[in-house]
Design a protein around this nucleic acid. Structure first.
Length: 298
DNA sequence: TTCCAGGCCATCT
DNA sequence: AGATGGCATGGA
């Protein structure tokens, strides 16, 4: 293999062990990554980035000046002690199967607005299609960013102010359907400062969730996704259709249980890092299903 | 063709 | 509170 040193790229080995990059980037917590054989390319903030998992860590290649790489290690959460987190989870056979199957799966710390906006687009949609719509949204309304020579162009996720300027019909033209007015109205509220996502860190999870749920198109589930994947509330436990089925089947003996009761159960049963349990369960359920007669589009 | 997708919301009892 | 239907679009 011939490796050409490029002057327009910067490389860095992020030392980390027990990091399952594939599970992390392909478990439905983010929608902007593309797999290239064993590696991934994506966009974090305004930077193009290529990630290659190695035995000793993750080899990162980015375009332009990388600074201190803190933006990357924060996003990837490489400094968290996964062992310690996993020991806080309740002992349960299905959960331990899930952790064993995808050992090293991490929660990312994403930019709050991109995370919230993406999940507004996620309701009642397959992950495959969410990715398509997010990509179109970036291409049409996001700022172009620097990519290495020979790489296709890339775009930043559009800021709330950029989306707030777009007409609803233009958003619908991207294929987002009834979610268009939700995204537009929420973008307007973020742009004019009615809700400041970055300030939600400092509040209790209940207060932060209530603030998010005042936004159009943001109910309990999408609020919990934003809390967990974008705002660092590790106890948030989003209950979607997959997790609902998992909880009913493996925690409630297959008995029909209302969503409200499942949410209450999850809140009181999985501890301060329940969000990790949720993500392992979600990814395990989806990837297992792939092995049977039907297939899951990722 | 029919069903379903990382739901939310308005509108009923 | 709890249940029901509508909502756009596309993949299986």
């Amino acid at each position: 293999v011939v490796s050409i040193e490029r002057t327009d790229c910067a490389k860095r080995l992020i030392g980390v062990r027990d990091y399952n990059l594939h599970a992390t980037l392909d478990s439905g917590q983010t929608f902007r990554w593309t797999r290239e054989n064993d590696a991934w390319t994506g966009v974090i903030g305004r930077r193009w980035i290529h990630l290659q998992p190695l035995n000793t860590g993750i080899l990162a290649t980015t375009a332009g000046a990388p600074g201190d790489w803190k933006w990357l290690t924060t996003y990837l959460q490489t400094a968290v002690d996964l062992d310690r987190i996993l020991t806080t989870l309740p002992v349960h056979p299905y959960l331990s199967d899930a952790v064993r199957a995808h050992r090293g799966l991490r929660l990312l710390r994403q930019e709050p607005w991109e995370c919230l906006a993406s999940f507004i687009l996620s309701s009642n949609k397959q992950i495959r299609h969410i990715k398509t719509i997010v990509q179109r949204l970036c291409e049409v309304y996001g700022d172009p960013i620097v990519t290495p020579e020979g790489r296709p162009p890339a775009w930043a996720f559009p800021r709330a102010e950029q989306i707030a300027r777009v007409g609803e019909s233009d958003l619908r033209a991207l294929g987002m359907g009834f979610r268009a007015p939700y995204l537009l109205q929420t973008a307007e509220k973020i742009a004019n400062g009615e809700c400041v996502l970055e300030e939600l860190h400092d509040q209790s999870i209940a207060e932060a969730r209530a603030a998010l749920m005042t936004l159009p198109g943001v109910g309990r589930k999408i609020a919990d996704c934003a809390l967990l994947f974008g705002l660092g509330f590790d106890e948030a436990f989003p209950v979607d259709i997959w997790v609902m089925n998992v909880l009913q089947t493996h925690w409630f003996r297959g008995k029909k249980t209302s969503l409200r009761n499942l949410i209450r159960f999850a809140e009181t049963s999985f501890g301060p890092y329940g969000g990790y349990a949720q993500q392992y369960l979600f990814h395990f359920a989806r990837t297992r299903y792939t092995g049977s007669s039907k297939t899951i589009a990722t």
